[in-house]
């Protein structure tokens, strides 16, 4: 289509207007595409920043030391960079959180999808949504100043900072994610399967556990994986309530730093741009991203493998 045809006035005028319209339509489409591409740029940016700063880090610290050293003292004169120290804190706190969140979230999901009437559901769902919307710093405050004192009544030796109380509160925080995703998965199971089970004389509970849960397994698994990602990436609850001393431990009643709370601790200080201390947080961040990436891929694989089609 060309707009420079100027023989017949009326026709060319209309063509010109049309061409202008097409140009602006194209420009708008390009603008919208650019907006959509921002998400891709974000990913590229994340990978670029983490990888490029980590390369600087690994020029000074060998990967073998990074993975096998049992001390994490990057700011001391005798510097050690054993990421396992931070990973142990992350693993223990996530484990405590999941031990709370997976049973509770699954039970709530089964209850809401198979037992509760619509009235209970109308009340329960917004409550869960509100619970999921509470800022994590507030949960951190709650873990440190409410849950820890209560736990100390039961376990008198519990220190003021512990992975246990942070993990428990993290678990409560994650419950809404598991409950709402699992409930969606279970409600997507067709009614005819349940009716078949009821017709054979199954009770509600038996139907829920032996028909609905297996049929919705891929959805449940996906929700657990998301929960793991949340737990591993959770920062503020741990920074407030778990203490920030690096501590290679598998005991939840001890204080310990995690990957995320270490990053917060360094960012609170005043490290010069480009120093080794500054670079450690990018290496720690890359480790964190790789852990969540592994779980994401696992989740997608599980979903594809166990998807039931009706």
């Amino acid at each position: 289509m060309s707009a420079n045809n100027s023989d017949a006035h009326t026709v060319s005028d209309r063509l010109a207007k049309n061409a202008m319209r097409n140009v602006s339509e194209r420009m708008i489409e390009a603008l919208l595409l650019a907006a959509a591409a921002v998400s891709v740029l974000t990913t590229v940016g994340i990978v670029y920043v983490l990888v490029s700063e980590s390369i600087h880090f690994f020029q000074q610290v060998s990967i073998v030391d990074f993975l096998t050293d049992t001390q994490w003292t990057p700011l001391f004169d005798d510097a050690h960079f054993g990421i396992m120290v931070l990973v142990s804190g992350t693993v223990v706190s996530s484990f405590v959180a999941l031990a709370v969140a997976i049973p509770m979230g699954t039970i709530i999901a089964i209850y809401l999808s198979e037992f509760a009437n619509s009235k209970v559901r109308e009340i329960a769902k917004p409550i869960l949504e509100l619970l999921g919307g509470i800022p994590t710093i507030v949960f951190g405050y709650f873990a440190l100043l409410v849950v820890t004192p209560v736990l100390q009544l039961i376990l008198p030796e519990l220190p003021g900072f512990s992975l246990l109380s942070a993990g428990l509160v993290m678990g409560i925080m994650i419950v809404p994610y598991i409950a709402s995703l699992s409930e969606d998965a279970m409600r997507a199971v067709p009614m005819s399967l349940r009716e078949g089970a009821y017709a054979m004389g199954s009770t509600r509970l038996y139907t829920a556990l032996h028909v609905v849960v297996p049929a919705a397994f891929s959805g449940l698994a996906a929700s657990y994986i998301l929960a793991i990602s949340r737990a591993v990436g959770e920062t503020m609850i741990l920074a407030v309530a778990a203490g920030m001393q690096p501590n290679l431990t598998w005991n939840p009643t001890e204080p310990a730093a995690t990957i995320t709370s270490y990053i917060v601790q360094v960012a609170l200080g005043d490290l010069p741009h480009g120093s080794i201390g500054y670079l450690t947080i990018f290496a720690a961040g890359l480790t964190l991203l790789l852990i969540t990436l592994v779980f994401n891929i696992l989740g997608q694989w599980l979903r594809a493998k166990f998807r039931e089609n009706y």
């Binding site: 591409a37 998400s39 891709v40 974000t42 700063e53 998301l226 990436g233 920062t235 964190l288 969540t292």
Partner: peptide, 24 residues
């Protein structure tokens, strides 16, 4: 690619965005 990206970004821990912002 864009769609997969958006769903993956939703699972990235928020502190990683902080590192992105610090660098960029």
């Amino acid at each position: 690619v864009i769609e997969v990206n958006i769903s993956n970004l939703a699972a990235v821990p928020s502190i990683v965005y902080g590192l992105l912002a610090l660098g960029i």
